[in-house]
């Protein structure tokens, strides 16, 4: 087990390095540059351009830029945003909380609700309720998240005026303490509902089909033949075998948490990483963009390692070596 974890960590570090390099190459090879965004459309002063290039180190050869960035990144310094002239670490730090709040809240709700409904419907396979929920799950799965978000805005914000359509808190009110928390939750409702509706169907269907499949396995018949109670069979043998694919899916979802919520952040003007990334892409803000990519990259790898280890603990058939 120890060796398995060490090996997964080493391969994880290598993955991060490779992706880091690819990201650097990709960002560099994209047309346009941050200096143009910085100077504006009208001004094109070669002297100013040169001075700015020198200031941001863009005049140096690409390999030198790469190693300088790598060296800084290894010490935890992601550099300074060319457009905003602020440390990228701070910018990501501020925005990360908003993204995690939205992403993790909706993920947990979707996971718990989806799994419970999946278990519920698996035990009533073929009932009207099961058929209804299954149909709805196909529909929500096929919906584009941004479209659903817009529809919910039209219905709940514009028409019914129950929830705010954008932002994370009321900027004018300047709430503090409990009032601020409640205000954030109030703003969280619509984007969170959108994400839950979109992601829940996956957990619902994977749990349901997994339970149905395990229920028909021969070892469940064996357990029934021994006279074991249905409750014990379900709680111990069916559940433990059926949970495996759900764990894999949860791991993938957590890993892609940041990327998954980007579109919704933009639709609801949620001040998270997603909307910041979009701006950074448009302005060719290399340090910010690279910083965001690196954080996503590391988080994907870390969560995948955790999922792998967890899976190896849950399923003895996975070989450690």
């Amino acid at each position: 087990m120890k060796r398995f974890i060490v090996r997964r960590i080493i391969s994880g570090i290598l993955t991060v390095l490779v992706v880091f390099t690819l990201n650097f190459a990709l960002v560099k090879s994209a047309p346009g540059d941050p200096i143009t965004s910085l100077m504006g459309k009208e001004t094109d002063d070669p002297v100013l351009r040169e001075a700015l290039m020198e200031k941001w180190g863009l005049d140096q050869p690409v390999p030198v830029q790469y190693f300088n960035y790598l060296k800084n990144a290894l010490t935890g310094d992601l550099g300074t945003s060319i457009i905003y002239n602020r440390p990228v670490n701070d910018m990501i730090g501020e925005r990360m909380m908003a993204t995690i709040l939205l992403g993790l809240t909706s993920l947990i709700i979707a996971f718990v609700l989806g799994t419970l409904l999946g278990i519920f419907c698996a035990r009533r396979d073929g009932s009207i309720l099961d058929n209804t929920l299954s149909t709805i799950s196909y529909a929500t799965d096929a919906m584009p998240s941004f479209w659903l978000g817009l529809m919910l805005i039209i219905l709940f914000a514009t028409k019914l005026d129950i929830f705010p359509s954008q932002g994370m808190y009321n900027v004018r009110a300047g709430y503090t303490g409990l009032q601020y928390v409640l205000d954030v939750l109030y703003h969280l409702a619509l984007p969170c509902i959108t994400l839950v509706l979109i992601t829940m169907s996956g957990y619902f269907r994977i749990t349901k089909s997994s339970i149905l499949q395990v229920t028909n396995e021969d070892f469940i018949t064996t357990m029934r033949a021994t006279g074991m109670s249905e409750r014990k069979i379900f709680n111990k043998y069916i559940f433990r075998n059926a949970i495996l694919p759900t764990v894999t899916m949860l791991g993938i979802s957590i890993a892609f948490l940041v990327t998954g919520v980007s579109l919704i952040e933009i639709v609801f003007s949620w001040p998270g990483i997603g909307s910041m990334t979009l701006t950074a892409i448009n302005q060719r803000d290399y340090p910010t963009l690279m910083g965001v990519y690196l954080v996503m990259n590391v988080s994907v790898v870390v969560v995948m390692i955790i999922t792998d280890v967890l899976y190896a603990i849950l399923d003895p058939r996975i070989r450690y070596d």
Partner: peptide, 20 residues
């Protein structure tokens, strides 16, 4: 069940839970 009547099934490979 099992006290008076027990059974051995066809597919022994699947006759027991794989994760226990």
């Amino acid at each position: 069940r099992w006290v008076k009547i027990a059974v051995v099934f066809q597919k022994a490979m699947n006759a027991l839970s794989p994760v226990h």
